[in-house]
Structures are given as structure tokens and as C-alpha cells.
Design a protein around this nucleic acid. Structure first.
Lengths: 152, 152
DNA sequence: CAGTATCCGGTCTGATACTG
DNA sequence: CAGTATCAGACCGGATACTG
């Protein structure tokens, strides 16, 4: 087990995790991201799905765009004028494994026993797929083999 | 790319991810967990490290204990009376890979260019390791091959 | 140490309305 | 549709003090 520490080995100010938490660590932001990962793109769609106050949604979307997690771009349906939509950037896509990991955690530890509603599979082989850590060759590293270290 | 959706395929109420977000999706809770993963265990240690108001810390710790993520138990130093400390439960430990994934994300996408202070490596091969999805054989599945589906 | 008690000001929430 | 405007109330954050 990890020994007791009086403080974390890394100061908050230069901790990437802390930074990520500052950006993403709030309920609405995470729920918006969840929607985005499922394909929701438009203001009113987010608003209806989450029942989030429009002012708050507006603010959160701006923040996500500012941080480069969503991009705001125009789409156009025929006969109608262009309207904006919010798409995941590469940074946003990179959150997919993280949030799916959180989803798995929720299923395993925060579930009330009802069947897990999401399953992840490989689109071709149909095999079940789960979040994990892989090395440069794409081979899994078990948690027990994972080494967390400070640079230099 | 994921097609546009008017709403997420899974209602919020039975989404494990949404549930996890309700429990963990707030700044202080995540920062406390970060400390706990690094070995911080005691009230005042959390308080000093995070500079969190004591009332808030008290409330968050209770919530985490209620949700079974931390356990509150006594420790005893010689000559002193027993005092409580907060340790990660199995559910809490299960968040380690998730938060490490978030840390990697922060390093890759939310960093200001300063060197990443944490690196994840394989303890034997020393290869760098990153979060991803693997199939049952431990082989990586590319994001483009990932299929998200509902259990019937 | 490990909390609880207070207090105050600010931000977020939630509801509703208005506009291009 | 995609927002901004407004407003009341809840909750949170921050500071400080007090107790076993």
C-alpha cells in the first residue's frame, strides 16, 4: 500500500492532474462532455438533454472551446441558414478513454445492480473492449506493473 | 466520426458515467482523491495541501466515505491517542487508473509546455505507457474501431 | 489534530423572458 | 435554433474562532 504522506509529492501548481481537474472538474462540464462523446453537438440538444440553465450552458461551452476541447463551427441544412455546432477536438477525443474508464468504474462501483447499459466492443471482431494502459506497441500493462514516477 | 445525435443513446438516469459524475464531478472531491492516491490520509494534511475550507473538507470526506470510496479508520501513534485517517477503499483504488488517465490527458493537452512531472512506464521494460482500450486478449483497439452499444 | 460553528459575500442554479 | 438578459434563492468558498 502507498505509505502515508503529509503532502502529495507533486505541488498542485505543476501537477497535470490538478490542472485537468481545474478545467474539467465540475458537474456540468463533465455532463456536457459526456453528451459530446455520444454525438450531441447543438446548443438546444445539450440544453434539453441535461436540463441545464441556458446561461450556464453558454458559459461552459465557451470555457470548453477556450480550452480547445470543443471546437465551434458552422453546419448548414438545406434551405436554412448556417448554425453553429460544437465538435470534439483532438483534445476532446483524447478524453474518451478517460471518461469511458470512469463509466466502467461507475458500473462496477456506483451501480445499483441494474445491468450495465453500455458495452464497448471492437467494431469488427465484436470482442468486448475495456479501458487499460498500453505500451508503445499497444500491449497491455497490468496495473501492478505500472510505474508512476517523477521525471528527473 | 460519431454521427450527430439529438440526445445521448442512454438516458442520464441509468448511465453509469452520469452516476460517476454525480459522485465525483466536483473540484474539491477530485482534488481530495488526488491527494489520497498520493498517500495523504489525514484531515489536516488534506486541509493544508489544498487550502480547502475546513467545513467543505469535512463535508466532502463524509460524502466520499458514504459512497464507499474512502474508509475512515483509526490510527495510533505511541503515546498519543487514536485519531482517524481516511484510506482508499477498493472502489477508491479502482479510480487510480482513471485519474492517471486524466493526468496523462492533462500532460498532453492542458500543459503549458513545462516538462510533464509524472510519467507512466512499465516497471520492467521501462517503456512509456498510455491509456487506451484493449480487447480480451489485451490488444489495443483503435478509437476508430470502437463500437459503443447498448445492452439490450 | 479533527473537527463543528458562524458569518459573509460571491457564484451557480433555476426559471422565465426576449432577440436575431 | 442559439443565444443574451434578468432575477431570486441556494449553495459554496473563504476566513476565523471554538472545542474535545
Amino acid at each position: 500500500m502507498i505509505p502515508r504522506a503529509q503532502k502529495s509529492p507533486i505541488p498542485l501548481d505543476d501537477c497535470h492532474l490538478a490542472k485537468a481537474i481545474e478545467i474539467l472538474g465540475d458537474r456540468w462540464t463533465l455532463l456536457i462532455l459526456r453528451g459530446a462523446l455520444f454525438g450531441v453537438r447543438r446548443f438546444d440538444d445539450f440544453q434539453k438533454e441535461l436540463n441545464i440553465p441556458r446561461t450556464v450552458l453558454s458559459g461552459r461551452l465557451k470555457k470548453l472551446v477556450d480550452h480547445g476541447i470543443l471546437t465551434k463551427q458552422a453546419y448548414k441544412e438545406d434551405g436554412k441558414r448556417a448554425r453553429p455546432e460544437y465538435l470534439l477536438s483532438d483534445a476532446g477525443e483524447a478524453l474518451r478513454p478517460v471518461l469511458m474508464g470512469l463509466n466502467q468504474w461507475g458500473g462496477a462501483w456506483a451501480s445499483d445492480g441494474t445491468a450495465p447499459p453500455i458495452s464497448l466492443t471492437h467494431s469488427k471482431t465484436r470482442q468486448k473492449v475495456r479501458p487499460a494502459f498500453v505500451d508503445e506497441d499497444g500491449r497491455e500493462t497490468k496495473l501492478s506493473e505500472l510505474r508512476i514516477s517523477l521525471r528527473r
